[in-house]
């Protein structure tokens, strides 16, 4: 707790807060979210579609953990330009990736 107070005292500008506790929680979560997909694939916990879903869910959760615990996205002051830029980036990302997969899998003229 003393550390927590110190970090706030030393830094009141709201760029990146975070305490040792939040970094440790983030690190443990990221380790767990890496161990689960490893178990799924290498030990064969799940198969087929369930395995795909579990793998992608862990990756997305891992992304969220890094954003919240390490990149401090939730502590941004209003107006939340960083969040807006991120949402824009993700929309472009999904459009490019999902669009490419959709076109190449289902809309080819010749196979």
């Amino acid at each position: 707790m003393a550390q927590h107070t110190a970090s706030h005292g030393a830094h009141e500008h709201g760029e990146s807060h975070g305490s040792l506790k939040s970094y440790v929680i983030g690190f443990i979560l990221s380790l767990v979210l890496t161990a689960i997909p490893l178990g799924v694939v290498l030990n064969g916990w799940l198969e087929g579609t369930a395995a795909y879903v579990a793998l992608m869910a862990c990756a997305v959760l891992q992304f969220a953990v890094q954003l919240v615990f390490f990149m401090h996205l939730r502590e941004e002051k209003k107006p939340r330009y960083n969040l807006l830029a991120l949402i824009f980036g993700i929309i472009i990302l999904i459009t490019i990736v999902a669009g490419s997969i959709w076109i190449m899998m289902y809309n080819q003229v010749a196979h």
């Binding site: 550390q3 110190a6 970090s7 030393a10 830094h11 990146s16 807060h17 975070g18 305490s19 040792l20 970094y23 983030g26 690190f27 990221s30 380790l31 890496t34 890094q66 615990f69 390490f70």
Partner: peptide, 22 residues
Amino acid sequence: ETFILLTSSFTGGLAVLSMNQG
């Protein structure tokens, strides 16, 4: 490689924490 990079992300966070503590 994956665990090394995850750990380095954490230690990078600890660097910022040290900085905030001066």
